[in-house]
Amino acid sequence: MQAEEYSLIEQCRNGNSEAYSVLVERYQEMIYNVAYRMLGDRDTAYDISQESFISAYDGLKRFRSDSKFSTWLYSITVNKCRDYLRCRKPDVPLDEVTEILPSKMPDPEDSLHQKQLGQTLQAAIGALPEDYREVIVLKHVEGLDYKEMESILGVSANTLKVRTYRAREMLRKVLLEAGVSNG
């Protein structure tokens, strides 16, 4: 996989942009979901994902072959999300988030239950501070290890561990207040 990707990247660098479509196909789902979890909106996630792939293509000459393409792509996407969030209106303070969340979760038998649970979860992730949201998304949505997260975020693995622990605690608190009970 790694060698094949380097070959594709080399082809892109030599002006064969069609080779890039293979990489976009391969990673679009991953990048789109990261952007969605970071931003909480499908349309914005779509735009940011598009821009991430275009920026990655522009910067292929700077891509170092000692790292994974996916790691590099994650890093670009996280930065795009940060830039977007910085320009957007300030985040809602955490203690006000539970007012936005549904006050009581519906009956699990309800057909809408799963959908609403998903919305509640996304609202809770969106309520986390940006750096906590990043670690939750990379660690638990994408299932990455701390070493890879270190490469993406440029922060030491130990710092990221502590940040993840705190982010989980905060998420637990927000979800409990939203009425999402254990199980």
């Binding site: 789902e29 789109y32 499908r42 994902s49 996304q122 638990h140 299932g143 979800l175």
Partner: peptide, 15 residues
């Protein structure tokens, strides 16, 4: 909950 959350499908015209 986070790990099993539904993943979005990418719109077909993305690539």
């Amino acid at each position: 909950m986070v790990e099993t959350a539904e993943r979005l499908t990418v719109p077909p015209a993305f690539t």
